[in-house]
Design a protein around this nucleic acid. Structure first.
Lengths: 126, 126
DNA sequence: ATTTACCTTTACGTTAACGTAAAGGTGATT
DNA sequence: AATCACCTTTACGTTAACGTAAAGGTAAAT
């Protein structure tokens, strides 16, 4: 028997609320089976959810994540779109690298301020 | 004569709208002088604005940026305040370090997505 | 003196990603 | 039969970071 999941099982596993998972469905990022009225998530759905969360962690919007997910399923025809998306991914990566550089600079600056505030210097600088 | 800036001069220079700059003032991130009813920004204000934008680039909220700005300008008077400030700085630095770690993870994840998207054969299909 | 080009405040509108009730169905257990 | 513990849909609420329009003041140029 193939394993399936209820909405709250997935919610618990990934530390989300059921509302959040339904929201992803509202946005067409998931389309679980229905047993009667209830949602039943396949392991494929689970993987999709993981991909959604991964996309979120790197700062994509749900719409952008949907684009990516759709391209996973795109029959290898629409290469133009794939290439376009790859460019977006790379752009995002560069942005993150930029941010990291910026954070490193900020850490340096904080350390400089720290130095000026060292307790030893407390009486030197009024 | 010391150079000052009008709101639209700054807006133009940093590619913002005047509304945005006023918004930063609403949120107490800027407090320019007033000549009559109009705002006049000193070069210090300009630097603050640069810091705001820098904070934004690294993904901080305006509230967080305000915290940081306040740290920069806390009147260096009392020892207690300095020690408190030092603690906040260290906490902030740790936060930044965490952020950097997080960004590193994001970059890794992006590369994972790239790998999954990377069509096995971009050049075979038209 | 009127147009032009700024500036001002006030205040409602927008988007994203959910939160949070409200009101009710389902099915197993007590 | 009643209580749980889930599940469902509908729909209004929230936050951040502004956008945008209304209504008007100011100051220099035409």
């Amino acid at each position: 028997m193939i394993k399936t999941y209820s909405i709250s099982e997935l919610a618990k596993e990934f530390d989300l609320t059921s509302r959040t998972i339904r929201h992803y469905e509202d946005k067409s990022l998931l389309e679980p089976e229905r047993i009667g009225t209830q949602r039943r998530y396949s392991s494929g759905d689970r993987v999709r959810l993981q991909l959604i969360l991964r996309g979120k962690r790197v700062g994509f919007s749900l719409d952008e994540i949907k684009e990516i997910l759709d391209l996973y399923q795109t029959p290898s025809g629409k290469q133009k779109q794939k290439i376009f998306l790859l460019q977006k991914l790379i752009a995002r990566k560069n942005q993150l690298i930029d941010q990291r550089t910026c954070i490193n600079e900020m850490i340096d600056e904080l350390e400089q301020i720290e130095l000026r505030l060292q307790p030893d210097n407390l009486d030197i600088y009024p």
